[in-house]
Write a protein that binds this DNA or RNA. Sequence first.
DNA 1: ATAAACCCTGACATTAATGTCAGGGTCAAG
DNA 2: CTTGACCCTGACATTAATGTCAGGGTTTAT
Lengths: 116, 116
Amino acid sequence: MKIGELSARTGVSIRSLRYYEEQKLLTSVRMDNGYREYSPLAEEQVRTIQFYLSLGLSTEQIASFLTCVLKNKEAFCEEVLPIFERKLKEIDGQIHLLSQIKSNLEDRIRSIQEER
Amino acid sequence: MKIGELSARTGVSIRSLRYYEEQKLLTSVRMDNGYREYSPLAEEQVRTIQFYLSLGLSTEQIASFLTCVLKNKEAFCEEVLPIFERKLKEIDGQIHLLSQIKSNLEDRIRSIQEER
DNA sequence: ATAAACCCTGACATTAATGTCAGGGTCAAG
DNA sequence: CTTGACCCTGACATTAATGTCAGGGTTTAT
């Protein structure tokens, strides 16, 4: 399948598909005319990439385990767990920071409302 | 006081102080030699700016109410409340999203660990 | 008068995935 | 053979606060 079809099937822009290839997340073979040709598996692969991106992982992180994960279950890829754990820590930190800001904002909003 | 001193007193880089001025968060008068001269009040003002930045507000948002807030209490500045409320909503959204990601990551980490 | 320590402006870099445009091939249908 | 719908590469733009560098004045102390 050509890039336009893959894009239509997955909802991912052509620009992004090319970017994923550049980042070694996705491969294609070139036809004689220079067009990219994708295997039918590419569709699932793109969805997988999008899923990991939605978890906030970078293309670099995804690239480090994607090949393995596409062949095996996550549990069999050594690289996966440390990346998930690092990301989880990072997210905990972000939630913590946001919660502090949230409390601060709530306090200020409350005291503004009381003073009126 | 000159910019170096203000920077030293507040811990804010000279680069940032100039940027705040560009964003109309901070004012200075120019000496004959072109140097910026700051009033003693500037120190407090810079701390106020930094505080609002730490709440995740943009320089544009801060600019919209800073003048008022520096003169009055927050409660007397009409502009403040809607900005705080908008930011609060935004942060709630972010926390919510991050929480979903966190759950997803935790699930995956757990099932990886169980499978080993 | 020279060196060190200031100050100035302007400009480019940073991050990361994606949008968008230019300039140019390719292919299919009419 | 032309038109429209594809495809290609390369490059610049986006966001926002801050870092950093270049090239050049000023001030202070020696």
